[in-house]
């Protein structure tokens, strides 16, 4: 599949837009349909698409394993960190009203960071799963 010209060209055209759409879904989630879960999945799907067309090793060079594994844990930490930040600022755990002087802005800030955390974890997990399955298949072929 790596030598198919049509796939390569169309893939190169489409993948930036897939990734851009994921970012749009992430940051526009407050106003339209979207949010962290969807954005993470779409972003991961874009990279999986890339890996299918250009080969797994190429994708691994761009998004290395170490980064993916860090993302896995980082997302949950960001989410929990927002909760703890609420504690430090004098509220309850996951209490967004204290994150800013204006409680409504505090809510916005809290929701934003929480969604970022969710997106990072979901994207990391999906990519990691795909890498695990795909790399296992590759090694079996070699053997």
């Amino acid at each position: 599949m790596e030598n198919n010209l049509v796939l390569r060209v169309v893939g190169k055209l489409l993948i930036p837009f897939i990734l851009l759409f994921a970012v749009y879904v992430q940051f526009h989630g407050d106003f339209g349909p979207g949010g962290g879960f969807q954005a993470g999945v779409i972003f991961a799907a874009g990279i999986v698409f890339y890996a299918i067309i250009f080969g797994l090793d190429q994708a691994r060079r761009i998004v290395p394993d170490r980064l993916v594994e860090t993302m896995l844990a980082l997302g949950v930490l960001i989410y929990a960190g927002v909760g703890v930040a609420g504690l430090f600022l004098g509220g309850n755990f996951l209490d967004y009203f204290v994150l800013d002087r204006n409680p409504v802005h505090g809510q916005h800030r809290g929701i934003f960071w929480v969604e970022v955390g969710v997106a990072i974890t979901v994207c990391g997990v999906m990519l990691k799963i795909f890498y695990m399955f795909a790399s296992r298949g590759q090694r079996e072929e070699d053997a």
Binding site: F37, G40, V41, V122, V125, M126, I129, M132, F133
Partner: peptide, 15 residues
């Protein structure tokens, strides 16, 4: 949330 958790557990089952 159930959908995303569902695909994660599906992947675990496949593994």
């Amino acid at each position: 949330t159930a959908i995303v958790v569902g695909v994660a557990t599906l992947a675990l089952g496949l593994a």
